[in-house]
């Protein structure tokens, strides 16, 4: 699977309250509506700046804080193709795999705002087309690849009726 788009850059410790604030997420299960408020407290115009397939690029510990699954779902529904960060918080990490949002762990210091990026998930490489460099990415553990390749945890359960990592 190849992903391509522009980088929207954020810092370290972007928590799930910033991704989608509690003042919205309790109101509705309509993810298209929640998506309009994604990253709003860090950048009020973020939603309107995103083109389909763009990337959120961040530093360490992306997705820390609350376990709200509305966070990856709001990102997906804002048409973000993937999140690229130096590291991720663990509940957010699981939630992304379960809901089918690709995560890319790599050194993001070599990515600037607006850079055009292309990601080869199977090949494990990120291309920064603007800077003409390749950045290696950390591969996903086999259990997570299995869930992602089944199309998320709901599809995995529909297929097997429970967990199946044989």
């Amino acid at each position: 699977m190849d992903l391509q788009g522009r980088a929207h850059k954020f810092g370290d410790d972007v928590n799930t309250d910033y991704i989608i604030s509690g003042r919205y997420k309790f109101k509705t299960l309509d993810m298209k509506e929640l998506a309009r408020h994604v990253m709003e407290d860090l950048d009020p115009d973020f939603y309107s700046k995103v083109n389909k397939g763009d990337f959120i690029v961040a530093g360490r510990n992306f997705g820390c804080g609350s376990s709200r699954e509305q966070a990856p779902l709001a990102i997906i529904n804002a048409d973000i193709g993937a999140v690229i960060a130096k590291s991720f918080a663990r509940i957010f990490y699981r939630n992304c795999i379960n809901t089918g949002l690709p995560l890319i762990e790599c050194d993001t210091d070599q990515i600037d705002p607006g850079d055009e990026l292309k990601v080869d998930l199977e090949g494990g490489v990120l291309y920064n087309l603007s800077k003409e460099i390749e950045i290696p990415i950390t591969p996903l553990p086999p259990v997570m690849l299995k869930i992602l390749s089944d199309g998320g945890l709901v599809e995995h359960f529909k297929k097997y009726g429970g967990f199946n990592f044989e």
Binding site: I91, R94, T99, V143, L153, F157
Partner: peptide, 20 residues
């Protein structure tokens, strides 16, 4: 430990979850 909603659903259905 805290999980998201889909992990919770898996727990509701199966009484199990995968852990590292």
């Amino acid at each position: 430990t805290g999980v998201g909603s889909t992990d919770l659903a898996a727990g509701l259905v199966s009484g199990k979850l995968w852990f590292k």
